[in-house]
Design a protein around this nucleic acid. Structure first.
Lengths: 153, 153
DNA sequence: AGCTGTCATGTTACAACATATCATTTGCGG
DNA sequence: CCGCAAATGATATGTTGTAACATGACAGCT
């Protein structure tokens, strides 16, 4: 059992615990995201599934499945890039803080991090002072990854 | 001379100083953003200009003009919402720190703020520890504005 | 005035991203 | 095995954004 299958297994348990099903198609989409080191668009996932599983995956299905997976917290949508990534912590089992995402503008590689709670608190304070309320601390930041920084230099 | 015209005047000076022209069409688009208290999509601007100025404004032109205005730092693109806002500081004249944006998910109202430099530095530090480099500190955050919070309650 | 170069705008076509709607299939509890 | 709910299929359409090339406006020169 390889790395991807192991994570899929965890995801399946998690779904079962929630009384929902991780169907074959859903596994395919999730597997696509897990085995990718970068964020993928819905249509890139269509291509991936169609190529790897020998039958065309309709775009409509991918969107529905992404919505499902997002709801189950197995994937995250990155609005900054209109792309999706697998959650980095499917296998850990423990409850997580809301993640922050570093997105490489060059190659779409994504790193999921947890910023210091104190820093988050400062941010929230700034927002409150402006009369707004943060609806999520899932921040997305435009970055360059190590590889692309090196390449640019 | 009303509020909007005054800001347009400042913008025009600023363009002249950079050796570029703030043409009629560009003024129309900029005026649309200035007189809106919320972020507008490119196509909302098409509608606005077509309605207010009595000739159809092609979407292509709006995109080109937005690109120009963004380059001149007169407007900001909000990737989280696929919308655009006028810079809140066109008239101040002084150099600004990179802004952060609070976007109301309900009504698209936008507030441009400046977070404590210390907080920004902490964020940048977290990013560096992860092996990435921030390409901009223009953060965008999903929020609710006062009005929409009150309404939701 | 006529020429020419540059920037701005117009036009058309299409790519990429996303949702609506209704039909059909599948899995599962009674 | 029946019937319901969930999942998927199929088709259409809406929204956002770019590419490529044509036309227009204007400034500076001769």
């Amino acid at each position: 059992m390889n790395h991807v299958e192991k994570i899929i297994g965890h995801a399946e348990q998690q779904c079962k615990a929630h009384g929902v099903r991780l169907t074959e198609k859903r596994k395919q989409v999730l597997a696509g995201l897990i085995q990718s080191d970068k964020a993928l668009s819905a249509y890139e996932l269509v291509d991936f599934c169609t190529r790897h599983y020998g039958q065309t995956m309709p775009a409509m299905s991918v969107y529905r499945i992404l919505e499902f997976l997002e709801h189950e917290q197995l994937v995250h949508k990155l609005s900054l890039a209109n792309k999706y990534v697998a959650c980095a912590h499917i296998s850990c089992g423990h409850a997580h803080t809301v993640p922050q995402f570093l997105i490489c503008r060059q190659c779409s590689k994504v790193k999921e991090i947890s910023i210091q709670p104190a820093t988050i608190a400062e941010l929230r304070e700034s927002v409150n002072e402006a009369g707004f309320k943060l609806v999520t601390t899932q921040l997305e930041m435009n970055c360059l990854c190590e590889g692309c920084v090196a390449q640019a230099a």
